[in-house]
Design a protein around this nucleic acid. Sequence first.
DNA 1: CAGTGAGCGAGCTTCCGCTTGACTT
Length: 810
Amino acid sequence: MQPSRTIYMGENLVIVESPAKAKTIEKFLGSGFIVKSSFGHIRDLSKKNLGIDIENGFEPDYLISEDKTKVVSELKNLAKKSKTVWLASDEDREGEAIAWHLQEALELDKSKTKRIVFHEITKEAITNAINNPRDVNFNLVMAQQARRVLDRLVGFELSPILWKKVRPKLSAGRVQSVALRLIVEREREIQNFEAKSNYKIEGTFHPEQSEQSSILKAEITHRFSTSKEALNVLELCRTGNFIVTSTEKKEHSKSPAAPFTTSTLQQEASRKLGFSLSQTMRVAQNLYEAGLITYMRTDSVNLSKVALNSSKKVIDNLFGPEYSKTRQYSTKSKGAQEAHEAIRPTYIENRDIEAGAQEKKLYSLIWKRTVASQMSDAILEKTQINIQTKEIEYPFVATADIITFDGFLKLYIESKDDENSEENLPMLLPNLVSGTSMDVIEILATEKFTQKPPRYTEASLVKKLEELGIGRPSTYAPTISTLGQRGYIIKESREGNERSYHQYRLYDGDIKDTIKKEIWGTEKNKLFPEDIGILVTDFLVEHFRSIIDYNFTAKIEEDFDKVATGKLVWNKLISDFYTPFHSIVEDTLATSKPTNAERLLGVDPKTGKSVYSRLGRFGPLVQIGEADDPDKKYMSLGKGQLIETITIDQALKLFELPRVVGEYNNQEIICAIGRFGPYIKYEGSFISLGKDNNPYDIDIDKCIEIINNHKIKEAQKHIKSFPEQDIQVLNGRFGPYIKRGKDNFKIPKNVDPASLEIEDILKIIDSAGSTKKSTVSKKGTAAKKSTPTKKSTTTKKSTPTKKSKTAKSK
DNA sequence: CAGTGAGCGAGCTTCCGCTTGACTT
């Protein structure tokens, strides 16, 4: 259903946000329409300064973003030649703003400009949109402007306070600072957590005079707080007469999860595929650009009619109609704007695709989740059997979940974050009637420890942020990576510790006590706060609690909505926020003291001096002696150590390094920890110790062994040398390569490195060099345009040397 | 690449959301 009048080439310009979207839409619209993309926002507040005229009603100073000048001039040209310009950015606050900025920046005549929206990219939806144009919704635009201005005010007033009071180049903002606070507060909960132990009692039974095959495992759901209580129960089990006191069967159903949004895709890709946030988004982008999935930055769980229909067909074909159940999901998350569909395969008929390995995996996950969301409930039968002896207050309970109809489980099971939950293996329970006498085979009382709260993963933090309504699909991944870049947090794995626990076993009439060992607290790819992150959070919470409040965004969003519906003027909102906010800013700048989180750990027994931990210019350190002590000593904190948790013993231990282990061939062997971990310094070269060796207690023999191994490896490294040209052929981590001066060159795969002569090598370098040169020249031209910063750094470079000379002469 | 922990002081850093490339080991 196209507009009835004839349309000529170039008469209509449609502008969308994404270039991939532009391509598909162009196909649907056919001749008479040119579809272009704005590549997102085209204008933003000036970056040089605040970009807001506070005195003048918070008037924003918008500039065309540097990387968008080309797109904007191109669009402007096309708009001039077009009779009608259709602004087809997304139907949410940001999309409406993009439409308005386009209208302004392209200087579009209102009479020839039309605003259209569609939620799904189908021919029907698009032609329907074309037939129902409207004007730009100015109230919605002003709501976006309020959001933008508020974020700028918060970010650009808070960050400079941190530069002054904590450390330069730090940042704070409405979203990132709350995300950071979540991580810091969780870490404190974990540090303050005291694991308590209790006893879990499990038994294995079988019906009297039956075969061993009808074994039944059951446990007492109550936990016993002391070993004495547990032993008492075991004692009673030894003599007790167990009978089945009840059997129960209950049917229940389980429904599939909604189709993917950005946040749930990130969570599942992390749990099921081990992808990081950025990896998930990069791979999804590839799938999107190849036309294989719908848009990957969305908060909507909605599926188009086309998708529902083809899902049904696919399910009917693959599993039969009894497995199909068409469902439409609704969004639960706060502040969702739902400008797009859920993330789904473009063509659900395609179960498999031709693509890279990661793309295939992620596509398959999306396909399964989408299709499963349109499948019937699974029906499960829960059986519970209670076994009890009258001497013991609590029954032993055996449960089993049996799937009577698998439904969507045939395709997809959503995974959980809780890695500690024990795997529920489907266990068949024997058919038993009440009153059946049971024999005890074995009873175990095992000491269990309460679990500390889990540290966040990237994905579980995104989940939390989404629950709080903080951040948007396009910012989840970048926000968390910013926290890392600022040095606030680190994503890493840490090894657990060993601990022992008691297990009492009743078997064959005897009760035995064994002490077993387990590893606990192992962390894999978790988010840990760094000292600077803790310090910044404490500072912000102390002075700006209302902004760092978990509900701040949710509250201010209500106001943005009022602006969007015309009930509130945007700069009234801003003014009401800014007046009290700015006075706290001024007050904090004037009164708060620079902070370094200094903490007195205790006294060094050797010297009697005080030991402190604090933040130094280059990071966290421990210090022996007062600030005015000329002989005071420093050491950097080790990996995983924090200013607020390091103990005096751990601190003193740091001063044991660097340590002279001994001599070998009249040369000192020194052990220390550097930026890349523990190392040996010997004959002027540095040898990594690896993580299996401890620099504090490694002995001389082991050191010599490592040194000799290192020498052998070094010798193997050299394949050939051409000293005259300063060229070497070396064995590296990734195979043989050519080294000239500081530059490395790849050797083509089919070439034997040992056979290379100097002529061959120069050829290889030449061919590699030509590509290198071209990139260098590109950089040069790019630099010409944006030089002010570069120039100033180069001109400055000459001065420091002069200064250092004068300093020396002093 | 394996170490820093004074001062002097100019000039710089920074936010959130919307989009893709252009980069290197």
